[in-house]
Design a protein around this nucleic acid. Structure first.
Lengths: 333, 333
DNA sequence: TCACTGAAGTGTTACGTATAACTAAGCCCT
DNA sequence: AGGGCTTAGTTATACGTAACACTTCAGTGA
């Protein structure tokens, strides 16, 4: 077989510098102190520079038995939320010499629902959010360290969660304080723990206040889907004065439905979202929503995984969230 | 050194099945026809299954000198556009047994502005969009096959482009047809070929129509930034009746500025965007914008790269784009 | 003088895989 | 009988790196 690539190897560098390959490895691996003279080290570095040497990562990974690469599995990147998660995770990873490979879940990406089929990279660990069950078993079969984001703590692996339940409570308090009693919960039509929590928590909070009513509608996570679902749910003319949405995109759909039905936001209908995407301040009126700190979320997830990789026990406190009160909610008419 | 991982190797499978390691490699690599009997092959597969064998990718990559992994370098994922590019690229890649590693450009990701520092994975090729120059040189230094998205055809590597220039022409024709003569171009404050093209093309088109005026403002790509820039540019009370934006997010900012200044869209001010993000139909009125087919873009980029990897010459026609006329543009007052 | 120490390296090996080159048996045809 | 072909494997090797174990040599203290 001909040499697959013509890239220079550490042996080429050694020849150029007039030393052994071992010396090159020591110098470039920064393990040379007390083993190689400063002059020789400099000669090696110089040779590496002139040849444009870059270590072959496949070889290094094989030799070391680890890759310093971590897989981040997220849902399809249709909002900037997971971009923030990635940014936070990558920041922490890079401080520890790790790389992050991003795998947006299969949305028509092919038959193989296995992250490893796509990420050919050999991996040291996985951070996963809201995954399909099949992929999960694939991961567990590999016995890779696993951190789950926004998932049932009772499930597999370490979990790192935003305090979504508290966010929902804040929304409920806010709306109850404005006098609202008749609610519509527009939930995401996705089987995921994080959405179950939202439904459960809202219901639990409202149940404690006499005279409240709570209807529920479900929609795929898209503006168009939410528009249709909200139009149906609001058209029936029940006395709903506040709509609590699982997500800002759903809230944007509610705006459109309201406009169609001749309802003004917030005069006739208060609306809340969750995430605080850019979208939330683009629409008019600006959306009252729960701000989730995506970057912090990513950082915490990566910290937990690195802890596991170091054999430590990661801490598991939930990440606080914060209600941003804007123009889409007002006192009940 | 103790074995880094306790995962079974092909040699373990061989022992379990009572054959040589080579036979295992042949069977699992699907190269066994006429070399190994069906019975033995089945025994090997069975052994692999019971041991939960997964090939060590680092070893395979080293042996083969290729990784069937491709890096996709995109700007920070603050919109769903590059999610679409990824989806398209990953779809094509997966059909050819390739994986895609996603690298969102360094937005505060750490000191190393080098994609390879972050993507530890060994790579066969790179698809890059609107990159920082430093990263580019790192890639070229590696002599990896490179496909550039939305970049100057005169620059390095193969380029795959959307026909942005035609999109701008369509916008100009549309607005001129509605009687507009006094334009504001709200451009992205980012040094990138794709934005230069938009400015150049708009100016070229308008110059051919006597009596037109064109002002220019620049803004970072964010709703808030655009709001500020547009407010300044529109406040001066010059007779601008149409704002052409480099991006839908900028257009959303123009909406907000207009609202502040008491200008109605589209009655007083027509606005156009580019991309056709979800945002475009979330805001009111819905935005007239140029629809860019992100998934097709990703597919074409990957097809081009795979062609290069096969030693072929990729075709280089631009991808057509299409103006979506919605409620944000109307006849000049 | 001589054992000892530290500095400055080098030789060699193993990581797990894929494949080229070889072997060995069985069968067919002349 | 023996050469050739097919089937069913095996043996051996290389990919590029990191690191262990070893060597050589100059200096040092007794």
């Amino acid at each position: 077989m001909p040499r697959a690539s013509t890239r220079p190897t550490s042996r080429d560098v050694a020849r150029e510098a007039g030393v052994s390959q071992a010396a090159v490895s020591l110098v470039l691996g920064d393990k040379w102190r007390g083993r190689v003279s400063e002059a020789t080290a400099e000669r090696v570095r110089e040779a590496a520079r002139t040849l444009g040497y870059r270590p072959n990562l496949a070889a290094r990974n094989l030799r070391l038995g680890r890759t310093r690469t971590v897989l981040l599995v997220v849902p399809a990147l249709t909002t900037e939320f997971f971009a923030g998660v990635y940014t936070g995770a990558a920041r922490v990873a890079s401080r520890h010499g790790f790389g992050v490979v991003l795998y947006p879940s299969p949305e028509g990406i092919g038959p193989a629902r296995d992250p490893f089929a796509s990420a050919q990279a050999a991996l040291d660990g996985v951070i996963a959010s809201s995954m399909a069950a099949e992929a999960l078993t694939a991961i567990r079969g590999d016995q890779l360290p696993l951190v789950m984001l926004d998932s049932d703590p009772a499930a597999a692996g370490i979990t790192v969660n935003l305090d979504i339940a508290d966010g929902v409570r804040q929304v409920a308090e806010h709306l109850l304080g404005l006098g609202h009693r008749h609610f519509l919960h527009l939930g995401a039509d996705v089987p995921s723990w994080t959405f179950e929590v939202r439904a459960r928590e809202l219901e639990a909070r409202l149940r404690r206040v006499p005279g409240t009513s709570l209807r529920t509608a479900r929609s795929p996570i898209s503006i168009k889907g939410a528009e249709a679902a909200a139009e149906t749910a609001l058209a029936s003319g029940n006395g709903v004065t506040a709509v609590v949405c699982d997500d800002d995109q759903l809230a944007a759909g509610v705006y459109k439905a309201a406009r169609r039905l001749g309802l003004r936001v917030p005069a006739d209908l208060s609306v809340t979202g969750m995430d605080d995407l850019a979208l939330a301040t683009a629409i008019d009126p600006e959306l009252t929503t729960v701000r989730l700190d995506a970057e912090l979320f990513g950082e915490r997830g990566m910290q937990a995984l690195l802890a596991v990789l170091n054999g430590e026990q990661p801490s598991d406190t939930d990440i606080p969230v914060h209600l941003e009160v804007r123009g889409s909610t007002t006192r009940v008419p």
